[in-house]
Design a protein around this nucleic acid. Structure first.
Lengths: 104, 104
DNA sequence: TATTTGCGCAACCGATTAGTTGCATTTATA
DNA sequence: TATAAATGCAACTAATCGGTTGCGCAAATA
């Protein structure tokens, strides 16, 4: 089961879930109200997000609050970093950019 | 057919292809030598990358050189931007961060 | 205590995915 | 000109994906 951050954010519903719980921790039921799918479908998305540590849970009685774990997003940012220089004008030393890409 | 940038980069082979052609434009055959799959499989990945404009082609006789199109990667960067403040310590005004997220 | 609520888990289903093989077409080469 | 090389396209396949329904269990509530 491939379960990395890139695969996790490839689904638009999961990106929407991330955007919601980034604002505040939420329960599966509360999350499901924002979508046209069942609570179970949302729970499946949460499970995927939890498995790749983009989300962590906090039990409170019978409710489970899911929190956003921003540190895991760094992985994506770090991958992007290798290419950022290629689209940002302020980098002029293209040679160094390419060198950096090679030593990834 | 959902064909957005996020779905495109969700596959590890496609991310590897991007990393390769970011260094220099390559033909499908040249690319395929770097992987354990067939040339056709690589071509299918290239097609997906082309459809979401992460890659553009340049015909040269019977060969086709595929180039990386970095501007399209901005989309991912812009999405990340909304969350970046959440993992970077230098941002202290969390209220503004959350406000920004709400107005996405 | 009986019932409702919140949740995870399992089974199932149709669509998509990533791979394969085979073939047709165009360009380069012997 | 005949042949080889580079590529795209189509058909097929097993695995995965995103969704569903049904269930069981623990916690809250009437």
């Amino acid at each position: 089961m491939r379960r990395d951050v890139f695969q996790a954010i490839s689904d638009p519903t999961r990106r929407a879930i991330i955007a919601l719980i980034a604002l505040q921790a939420m329960t599966p039921n509360a999350l499901a109200e924002h979508f046209d799918t069942s609570r179970q479908a949302v729970s499946k998305h949460i499970k995927i997000l939890t498995e790749c540590e983009l989300v962590r849970q906090e039990q409170s009685g019978r409710e489970i609050y899911y929190h956003f774990n921003p540190t895991k997003m760094k992985e994506i940012d770090q991958w992007l970093e290798k290419f950022r220089a290629l689209w940002e004008d302020r980098f002029s030393q293209l040679d160094n950019v390419l060198l950096n890409l090679k030593n990834k």
